[in-house]
Amino acid sequence: MRSELRPLALVYLGLLALLALTVAGSFLPLGHASPAVSFGIAMAKALLIVWFFMGFRREGWAVRLAVLAGLVWLTILLSLTLLDLLTRNWLMPHFGT
């Protein structure tokens, strides 16, 4: 158990640093890059939690694949739905609505 303490504490400090970074970043005038930055940092935090806290670094491919599939399918849902909104009035304004 001792041997686990050090890496877990380091990961925890890393998570707090990322949190500080994302809060600070949200006050900067990043414009349209802002969501990309904050979600990029969130992704990094999530990876740290999954890999170290949840112990996925020690598990087999099946377990990793399960969570990965969840993420891939979520990406499908988000991207194709958003694509509809973003191209709805493209080239032909107010075609549909």
Partner: peptide, 12 residues
């Protein structure tokens, strides 16, 4: 929560 936090509180 790590994802809800930026999606709700850090919308800029």
């Amino acid at each position: 929560w790590v994802f809800l936090f930026p999606a709700l509180y850090l919308v800029r």
